[in-house]
Design a binder for these strands. Structure first.
Lengths: 249, 249
DNA sequence: TCGTAACATTGGGATGACCAATTTTGGGAA
DNA sequence: TTCCCAAAATTGGTCATCCCAATGTTACGA
């Protein structure tokens, strides 16, 4: 009886696996290992680190799962090109485990995106504006439902980028992706013109460098989306990578 | 030559490890495995899943590293009590790898926290208010520098909770933690009264249910912090769990 | 009753063998 | 010479075993 009341300890253990993971992280962050690098074969690396192949593999598996690198049988181990994606698995998992609903996700966007739109109005570069404008123009002539959804998402991503806040560029696209299914469903309730009638004023405000206006127009847009979501009856569950896993259980 | 132009594929591979990870995630999200559960010994689980112990260990290692569970030698494997913490490692890693500075972290807070304060003013429950109030009262009589920093952080966490947005409660405390070192440094530039002179108006606005005021007071607070950070000369680097790792490299 | 030593259990790590996917090599045909 | 394809080498994926060290349990003795 009397199991540990001690909390699990958030800090990583000091076992070989974690030390290897730390070693890789340091090597990468120090620039010793550049993104895209092909690492030596496991059978070579293991002795070089002074560990067994299995221990090394534990670490590599964890790193692969974190999105730091990927392995291909018969080929080798490669560092991923960007740190983008490191967050997606854990964040989607968190959303899944906590059972966070689409409306909660939308609320989070409502907290963040208006302010990001305002920042975008202050800082957007020419390429940023071009990119935003392009999604709008393409949306005009696009008919395919799925591509329209992609363009919708691209517009918002464009604002994340234009806001100039790198952390936001990493975090919030994932939240948006997580409600992909919801976006798809709600967008069947309206046509592209409806979406455009919200995107355009946002773009205009950003283009004209009017932060307050951009903020408000984004609020209008997301509040409208909230209405649509309610109408859709929350049928949609959060999308997750995890759905794709097989049996075994 | 001619290596794959194909992008690394964001989706997980279909190897045993990943299937096991998926299986666990599903079992947990479906409630079959409850948080805190003690799992069977590896030597039992492996045959039950129809895999070898080493493969199972790969998956468990990855899951442990993700913060889903933890293992103790001689004891066993336990699911973590909450999904809290799943994000911390990857998010900190992202900050480290992208070299995101303290001022960028602060800017992210500036994007988010004012709005969260406003929501808190709309929704804070009595316990929420009590909790916020307590951090203020304790800050009054606390002298220890480190504990003051903790109380500072606790106040902001309290607002995250009071905002009622669960996803924010998960994400933003980590960002705050990531700039722990910076907070500690800037707080040596001022005394507790200085911090309190900002916290109190925020609390009052929340208590009096004045969202707009809460939003503005939070902006004032963080803008002041930005000034302090600039004065501190950005000496501080982001804090990271990763710092603690040993050599091996 | 309490402490402690012996024992059992459990995760940590190493090794070696074999499989399967992929790339590389080299020879043969056009 | 150029191109195609089969054989060989390379590489990650998986498994089976062995031993160690940390922890928990049990039972004995003061």
């Amino acid at each position: 009886m009397a199991s540990k009341i001690t909390q699990p300890a958030v800090r990583p253990k000091d076992d070989i696996t974690n030390r290897l993971i730390g070693a890789f992280n340091r090597l990468i962050s120090q620039g010793v290992l550049r993104p895209g690098t092909k690492l030596p074969p496991e059978r070579e690396m293991a002795p070089r680190f002074g560990v067994s192949r299995s221990s090394l593999r534990h670490a590599l598996k964890a790193l692969e799962n974190m999105g730091i690198l990927y392995q291909r049988v018969g080929d080798g181990t490669y560092l991923r090109e960007s740190s983008e994606g490191i967050l997606s698995r854990p964040l989607e998992l968190l959303i899944l485990l906590d059972g966070i609903s689409a409306s909660e996700l939308l609320e989070t966007r409502l907290i963040v995106e208006p302010e990001l739109a305002a920042r975008a109005a202050e800082r957007a570069t020419s390429p940023d504006l071009d990119s935003l404008n392009r999604t709008i123009r393409e949306m005009h002539k696009e008919r395919d439902q799925q591509k329209l959804t992609e363009l919708d998402i691209a517009f918002h991503q464009g604002i994340f980028v234009a806001s100039g806040n790198r952390l936001s560029q990493r975090i919030f696209p994932i939240i948006q992706r997580a409600m992909l299914k919801s976006i798809a469903i709600t967008s069947t309730l309206v046509d592209a013109d409806h979406t455009l009638s919200f995107h355009k004023p946002i773009y205009d405000a950003i283009y004209k460098r009017r932060p307050a206006e951009a903020r408000q127009k984004m609020i209008d847009h997301l509040e409208d989306a909230r209405g649509l979501l309610a109408k859709a009856g929350e049928r949609a569950q959060p999308t997750s990578l995890l759905d794709s896993f097989q049996s075994i259980g």
